[in-house]
Simulated assay, not measured.
Amino acid sequence: MSDGRRGAPEAVDGVLAALADPTRRRLLDLLAAQGEATATTLAEGVPVSRQAVVKHLTVLDAAGLVSGSRVGREVRYAVRPAALDATARWMAALATDWDRRLAHIKRVAEAAERDAG
């Protein structure tokens, strides 16, 4: 791929797109702290309407980051960590790859400096 995401599965793309929004990150933080919550409860912790919270939760659900389950008339949302864990593993592998590349560049530069001196 030429877009810099070499090998990133589609699920990672969805997670990164969902996490790009600060309101969605805040909703995940709130859910992680509360365990589970309704959209109404979550709306109390963010500066957007309940309807906007529901739209954000829909994006988070599509990315596999939250799930909603009906309890009576309410829908309770909870964090689903698997997609976030997979994204963190992908990012760690990417960081390791860059560390390896940078170490190689450093060795080449040091060798060139020794040869020139």
Rank of each mutant, 00 (worst) to 15 (best):
G64A: 00
Q34F: 12
G45K: 01
D85R: 03
G64D: 00
V59L: 05
S69V: 10
H56D: 06
L65G: 00
R70W: 05
R5E: 10
T23D: 03
A92Y: 09
E36F: 13
R114G: 07
L42S: 00
A63K: 07
M1Y: 08
T96H: 08
V48P: 12
W98M: 09
R100D: 15
V79T: 02
A52N: 14
L60T: 01
M91W: 03
G117K: 11
D3L: 13
A39T: 09
A32P: 03
L27D: 01
R114A: 15
V59G: 00
A86S: 09
K55Y: 12
L57C: 07
A18W: 04
A11S: 15
S49M: 14
A11L: 13
R100Q: 15
A93K: 09
W98T: 10
E74W: 10
L31N: 01
A82V: 13
G4H: 05
L28P: 03
A95R: 12
A63P: 12
R5F: 15
L31I: 11
R80K: 07
A116C: 08
A109G: 02
S67W: 04
T40G: 11
I105K: 05
V59W: 05
W98N: 03
K55N: 13
R73N: 10
D29G: 09
L94E: 07
E36C: 12
A39S: 13
A78G: 12
V66E: 04
T23G: 01
V46G: 02
R25L: 02
E74I: 04
A43D: 10
G14A: 06
P81Y: 04
T23F: 05
A8Q: 03
S2V: 08
D29W: 08
D21M: 01
A95F: 04
A88H: 09
D3P: 02
T38V: 14
P81F: 07
V108F: 09
A32N: 10
A37H: 08
A82N: 02
R70Q: 12
R73F: 08
R100N: 11
P9V: 11
L19D: 01
H104S: 12
A88I: 06
A37D: 10
L94Y: 09
V71R: 15
T58Q: 12
V46D: 01
A63D: 04
R89P: 04
A32R: 11
R76C: 05
A103H: 11
R25I: 02
A39Y: 11
I105T: 10
L84G: 13
E113L: 14
T96N: 04
L94W: 08
W98S: 05
V46C: 05
S69I: 03
M1G: 14
D85C: 00
T38Q: 07
A43N: 06
A62H: 13
G4Q: 10
G68R: 08
T23N: 03
L28Q: 01
L30K: 05
L28R: 00
P9E: 04
P9T: 02
P81K: 00
T87D: 02
G45A: 06
V66K: 03
R25T: 11
R24F: 00
Y77W: 15
V75E: 13
R114M: 14
A109R: 13
E110G: 01
A18C: 04
D85A: 10
L30T: 08
A112K: 14
D97R: 15
G35I: 08
S2K: 08
A88T: 12
V53W: 06
V75L: 12
L27C: 01
